[in-house]
């Protein structure tokens, strides 16, 4: 029993580290634009399918596949930004959200038109045995993902607090109007933030599909929902919160799956999201606006 609890927690951390990575990109977009990008996951899926297509048709190494996934996600992200977010910058957040869903449908259909099977194999990043501590095991990929999540959120923190770009981003978050007056090219900063978030999403996508060694069109919805949930749990707009939120979600899911089954696991995750919104709409560990750095 005790052993199960620990193993579940480890499995949860493994799953949660992919949620954490997804949430970091999601949080970056939400924190800066105050918009929900429902096409975040589908853009990642698009990148994953680009890499899968290359993998099926050519010989490509793992690094090449990772780069193609990220490039595909960034390309898709740029399309989403131009069509759904740039035009609604001063307008309705709701219109942007619905427009981003409309593009989601496009990505899903485009992908299934070119690659109609339900599932495609994807080469594994690592074939070796998992880490073992006594009888406990932890998958190697999980460690890579966790390291990436922590490194990226720390790196982003440094960039946002230290660089010229970070300064511009923070100015835009504080007041887009004042930033514009101070000579910052606001639309350009927003596009850059969007592309940065998409590339983080693309990396997350590569790590996730190479861990699962397969890809389906469901990856789009899955990534959006998990990223959104982890972001909500972590307190909207906080990068360390996003990482913590992803891990909390992963552990919670692992335990509820073990004790209650997969449907109750999903039910619990949505209940948590609903409850958080109803009770603490601005996140569990609400960062004050000064702390909300991204």
């Amino acid at each position: 029993m005790f052993f199960d609890l620990i193993q579940n927690t480890l499995d949860g951390l493994a799953m949660g580290s992919s949620y954490a990575l997804l949430a970091v990109g999601f949080t970056l977009i939400f924190g800066v634009l105050r918009r929900v990008n429902l096409s975040y996951g589908p853009a990642i899926m698009f990148g994953g399918y680009c890499a899968t297509w290359v993998h099926l048709n050519f010989q490509a190494g793992l690094l090449a596949l990772a780069i193609i996934t990220i490039a595909g996600a960034v390309l898709a992200g740029a399309y989403v930004e131009r069509l759904c977010f740039a035009p609604h910058r001063q307008g309705s957040a709701i219109a942007a959200m619905v427009a981003s869903f409309a593009l989601w449908m496009q990505f899903e259909e485009a992908v299934t038109l070119v690659m109609p099977s339900h599932v495609y194999d994807f080469p594994a990043m690592y074939d070796g045995p998992p880490f073992e501590f006594g009888s406990l095991t932890l998958r190697m990929e999980a460690l890579v993902m966790l390291a990436c999540a922590v490194a990226i959120s720390y790196g982003l923190h440094r960039v946002l607090s230290g660089s010229r770009f970070g300064l511009a981003v923070r100015a835009v978050i504080d007041s887009p109007v004042a930033a514009q007056l101070a000579g910052i090219d606001v639309p350009r900063v927003l596009l850059q933030v969007f592309l940065l978030a998409s590339s983080i999403g693309g990396l997350a996508g590569y790590l996730i599909v190479s861990t699962h060694t397969q890809i389906t069109p469901m990856l789009g919805m899955w990534s959006t929902l998990k990223g959104l949930l982890a972001m909500m749990i972590g307190g909207l707009g906080s990068l360390p919160g996003a990482v913590a939120g992803g891990l909390v979600l992963g552990v919670l899911e692992a335990h509820s799956q073990w004790f209650l089954g997969p449907q109750s696991r999903d039910l619990l995750a949505f209940l948590l999201l609903f409850g958080l919104l109803a009770v603490r709409p601005y996140g569990l560990w609400r960062a004050s606006s000064a702390e909300a750095e991204a």
């Binding site: 409309a102 496009q106 259909e109």
Partner: peptide
């Protein structure tokens, strides 16, 4: 037929602009 979602999705996004 076959790519209606692409047409409808694009239509929605452009119309909303």
């Amino acid at each position: 037929q076959g790519y209606r979602m692409i047409v409808f999705g694009g239509l929605v996004a452009v119309l909303l602009v």
